[in-house]
Write a protein that binds this DNA or RNA. Structure first.
Lengths: 119, 119
DNA sequence: TCAATATATTGACACTCATCAATATTGAGA
DNA sequence: TCTCAATATTGATGAGTGTCAATATATTGA
């Protein structure tokens, strides 16, 4: 009732982080560590269709076309976006599972989380 | 049953992200975008007492003392750690609320999340 | 006050990366 | 095939940053 803890989301803990895991995880956070890329994720998500072409993203970001393409490539390579051709346009779409997986790494093992959800 | 969605965690959406919010959020992710800093958070959390002094963190990280102090300062300045003097030692402790707040920004408004949890 | 220990700061260097201009590539239509 | 529009790539540049050696600061104990 008055419990302020979200049932499925126990306190965040980074457990047994090997150097390799740390580098992998850090590389994902590094991708999100740029305001333009966060705005891209936000803008694409905000589209009614859930997808956006490059030309729709240039003006709201206030960056050059090559720079926007660069950021989209970084997001794509990291698995945050998918892309699909439609004629000359390339439509990008957010992959929610990637963000989901990312912050799952900040939580205790899924077993414990599952248990809390189920019981 | 066969629903793969976690009840309390609807698809991640970054909504209405202003340039200022984007920069603030990105700066937090940037702090986590370094493997040494992730390892520091992991190591400190793993301590039975929940706290660790600098001298305990140097050897497992394999970095120089000034570099470890530097990373601790970055984490402290961003609100991921607290510090407390005990004699000549300085003990650092993880602030779970900061990590919690960080990934809350990746989710839809709490209202929607609450609703999903309750039903 | 002095010495020893723990931590923080400074300065320098190498490396990464965000950005743009210029150019290349791709696809559609004539 | 040619042209045009949309996107991607290349190369260059400047800003940021992770790292260390050297040094400074702070605390304890004699």
């Amino acid at each position: 009732m008055s419990n302020t803890l979200i049932p499925c989301c126990p306190p965040l803990i980074l457990q047994h982080l090997s150097p390799i895991d740390a580098e992998q995880l850090a590389s994902m956070f590094r991708v999100l560590g740029d305001p333009s890329r966060l705005q891209l994720l936000s803008l694409i998500t905000a589209q009614p269709s859930g997808a956006a072409c490059v030309c729709e993203l240039i003006e709201p970001l206030g960056l050059s076309q090559p720079t926007v393409s660069h950021h989209l490539k970084v997001l794509f390579d990291a698995g945050f976006l998918t892309k699909e051709r439609r004629g000359t346009w390339m439509y990008y779409r957010v992959v929610p599972q990637t963000l989901q997986a990312l912050y799952s790494t900040l939580q205790p093992p899924a077993v414990g989380a599952e248990a809390v959800v189920i019981r």
